[in-house]
Design a binder for these strands. Structure first.
Lengths: 338, 338
DNA sequence: AATCAGATTGGCAGCGCTGCCAAACCCTGT
DNA sequence: ACAGGGTTTGGCAGCGCTGCCAATCTGATT
């Protein structure tokens, strides 16, 4: 814009060194509080930093520091979506642990698209992170290859039903489905339906459904009917889908939802249509959203350790233990709807 | 771990150059698809990249590229929270635009703490981003100084009620409060209360309340009573707070909530206690969450252009227009609760 | 065959910081 | 006054990549 602008170069570490009358490495040591230096030097450096408004350049720092022990204090995180509150929760858990350990994070959102995930993996690896946290166990062959070739720590979170590349932190989605089914059976429900969202997008939901279905079948009361809403989960989708399901099968006495969003929508349908819950129809969700607990009748659902998963994922990345699967479990919340 | 491990150095650009039998700068040009090179060279480079599994080092790239025109394709984003779906939505909008323009983002979460925001600004600036997107207009003096000194583009999003540092993208929260009040007045409600969450944390909510309160006062029907739930907004907090409010003032005929989460909780309270909505009590929210539209009676609320705000924020960062305020407006959704 | 503009290409100096190592100091004890 | 062991310090070579510029090559033109 202004041709005469003196092309203000940003303040660099060597500017600080000059201003403080010390060497560059001394400034570097003081700023990282590493190695030894006198109090006097420290004060002079601090003064110069403040006076010049110096902001360290992490890019340069990480570049220079790489290759050696110190390494990058950076982790990449890939989640499939920001819309479902579950994933921001994972980030929240991870963030807390990240801050504690002085790490930074770079985040990628795959929109449930495996190809996009693969691309994101490449993008994040190019930051040379100390580790990568991805969601789920299913990845394209290319993604798997890249992760393996990267040579860094990998954490796959949320799902423990399958083989992981390195560290896996989560719980058994299959188990969730089984336990959900057992609960409904134990309460005496027999004509049970399922309302889900597009399962191609959400492999974990598919695993829950598989466990649920199998448990019902083994008990001799096979899943009576399913209704899949197109697109991602939402209360609106759940409400509409339950409507369609009941239109086809008015005899159902319980419905299992792919998650609480859908279940909440189902509950709204029941309220709107005067379907007594759980007398006439029982509802069962998944995730234990805060909002589900505030309903007039608290939703019966499964609490998943979302924050813990994020936190443990980061911990394991930082530590350098062996490859392993950490099952954080889940908890059935017996609400008033089933 | 393994002492004998050949200290596998990662593949670098010069390895690729050697493998492809071309110069480093040629590889660089091909990879960035910039400058000119022959088809044959391109193929050879592509082959070498694939064979060696080369992953470019962005750190080095950005370091080298800085100082010149090209500059960093990186923006920093600071939001106060991940819990409230509003902020992930902003990220979502920003992400879409970011991808389109080939930018990467680094995200910071301030937990509504101004001091933490200031620290995050420092942390993000050290990535030498092309621009920074922050939330709201209120920052500590130190934060403001750092932003100004950074010399990069700054976007403050969501709130247009005040002076911005550079670019401001959002809507008038004060206006939202005013229009909400006018709507309730127009519908004939006179004994109006307010249910909010900790306002020290959420300056935007405070501005809405101020506009709401003033409009009511001017109309001669001042706000009858307020109830502030401690902590962040949630359905549970809204439900409990409405309970307390009505216990004190059973005569209220309408309640304005700090947002839809709180309003949803309020609605649940009404359902649970048999308070007729809107006959006995009208409810008015803010944000137009998807879930609010799926309620048996759609919530009357205000739709905010969250995705657009994120997208426009990024666009303005990338373009280099003048400092200005972009008001994206909002829309009153007349539901069935008020 | 010589000439010339334009297309391709390679070499190399940094970008700002950290790691390594030698140099300079600072105290003791003798 | 001098050696010996720790504490501070500064110099400088990279980290891997891009920008700049000169060198080389290409094909068409004269």
């Amino acid at each position: 814009m202004n041709v005469h602008e003196p092309e203000r170069r940003l303040v660099t570490l060597s500017d600080v060194a000059r201003a403080a009358g010390v060497g560059e490495s001394t400034v570097s040591r003081v700023l990282r509080n590493q190695g030894s230096f006198s109090k006097r030097t420290q004060d002079r450096v601090a003064e110069a930093v403040a006076r010049l408004g110096y902001v360290p350049n992490r890019l340069a720092g990480m570049l220079a520091g790489s290759g050696s022990t110190a390494g990058a204090k950076l982790v990449g995180i890939i989640i499939p979506s920001l819309t479902n509150i579950v994933f921001p929760d994972l980030l929240r858990g991870a963030n807390a642990a990240l801050d504690r350990d002085g790490f930074q994070s770079v985040i990628g959102v795959s929109d449930y698209d495996p190809a996009r995930e693969e691309a994101l993996i490449g993008a994040l690896l190019s930051w040379r992170p100390a580790g990568l946290i991805v969601t789920g166990l299913e990845h394209t062959a290319g993604a798997r290859a890249r992760l393996r070739a990267s040579g860094i720590r990998i954490v796959e979170m949320i799902d423990t039903d399958g083989d992981g590349l390195d560290i896996v932190v989560g719980f058994s989605n299959r188990g969730v489905g089984c336990d959900s089914a057992r609960h409904l059976l134990a309460r005496g429900y027999r004509r049970i339906g399922y309302v889900g969202h597009d399962i191609a997008l959400d492999l974990r939901a598919a695993k829950r459904l598989a466990g649920f279905r199998e448990t019902l079948r083994e008990a001799g009361h096979p899943l009576a009917e399913t209704e899949i809403a197109p697109g991602p989960s939402s209360a609106a989708a759940g409400r509409a889908a339950l409507g369609r399901l009941l239109a086809r099968r008015p005899d159902l006495d319980a419905v299992y939802f792919s998650n609480d969003d859908m279940a909440l929508g189902g509950y709204f349908h029941c309220l709107a249509e005067g379907v007594a819950v759980p007398g006439r129809l029982a509802l069962f969700g998944f995730n234990a959203l805060d909002i589900a607990a505030a309903m007039p009748q608290p939703l019966t659902t499964i609490r998943t350790p979302r924050l813990e998963i994020g936190a443990v994922a980061v911990e394991r990345l930082a530590a350098d233990g062996p490859a392993e699967t950490v099952d954080l479990g889940y908890e059935l919340i017996a609400g008033a709807t089933a």
